[in-house]
Design a protein around this nucleic acid. Structure first.
Length: 259
DNA sequence: CTTTATGTTGCGGG
DNA sequence: ACCCGCAACATAAA
């Protein structure tokens, strides 16, 4: 589930429900999702602390406490952040923070993500690794710089150290909306194509963020890629698919040409 | 049983 | 130094 739009949804949930709240208790039903601490360490860092305003960079959620440690969250492919007030525990709830008014739950089927703890003042990059400009606010000049060098377009869009935020679905939507083939070499992209990719990235995210996901609309690739015989929502040509950058990829062979 | 899944990392090779 | 492909991680569903 989580690409930038999903994680931005989690950030907003956190801002609405958890910011300003005091942690009463931390519970880790799956302690292996605590990546650089233990249940005891987590409890010591969070108990009786209040959360401050959450931040997001790419697919990373950063939730500092007031004058204390910062919790860093990554959701892998299947994670989500939930707010629960009176719901029974779920088998995939890996971490539960009890706040005064409810519970914050990290629900994650495959344990590919997790939670890290940063000491006050510690650089988040220790955990996140280098991240490019956040895709939600990236300028055209920044994107052009990110799409420089060797490699192909989709790989570059997925490389978080170039642009932080796009995942497999966003990358496909952006290439399709911009009418650029995902396998196009970076060096071959024209200035016009840079502009189209930038506009498509901004547009896809502007539409997806309010939904908290890449919406499976019929006029998006996401809405048709699971059809038995998916066609381009614009021109009705049968979509092509294959592996690009090691990920399952869909494109319109009529509108996104390699030549 | 096999394949696939919206992510990241580490490794070998070009 | 940079980039690619691939396996691995963990788990469920088709």
């Amino acid at each position: 589930m989580p690409e930038l739009p999903d994680v931005e949804g989690f950030r907003r949930l956190f801002a609405d429900r958890a910011a300003g709240q005091r942690v009463e208790r931390a519970h880790a039903p799956a302690p292996d999702v605590l990546r650089n601490t233990t249940p005891q360490g987590l409890g010591r860092a969070l108990r009786h602390r209040r959360f401050a305003r959450p931040r997001r960079h790419g697919k990373w959620l950063l939730t500092p406490t007031q004058d204390g440690a910062t919790v860093v969250w990554h959701f892998g492919m299947t994670g989500s952040l939930r707010w629960a007030t009176d719901e029974p525990p779920h088998a995939h709830d890996r971490l539960v923070l009890h706040l005064g008014s409810g519970e914050l739950r990290l629900r994650m089927m495959r344990k590919l993500g997790g939670m890290w703890l940063l000491r006050q003042g510690e650089d988040p990059a220790v955990v996140t690794g280098p991240l490019g400009p956040d895709a939600l606010a990236i300028t055209k000049a920044e994107l052009r710089a990110a799409l420089t060098g060797r490699g192909v377009l989709k790989s570059a869009l997925l490389a978080q150290e170039r642009v932080a935020g796009p995942g497999n679905l966003v990358a496909d939507e952006v290439c399709w909306r911009a009418r650029v083939h995902p396998r196009r070499g970076l060096a071959s992209l024209t200035d016009d194509e840079h502009g189209r990719v930038h506009g498509a990235l901004r547009g896809v995210l502007a539409d997806a963020v309010p939904e908290g996901r890449v919406p499976p609309r019929q006029d998006w690739l996401t809405g048709v890629r699971d059809d038995a015989e998916p066609v381009c929502p614009r021109c009705r040509t049968a979509l092509d698919h294959g592996d690009v950058a090691g990920r399952s990829t869909w494109w319109c062979p009529a509108e996104q040409r390699l030549d």
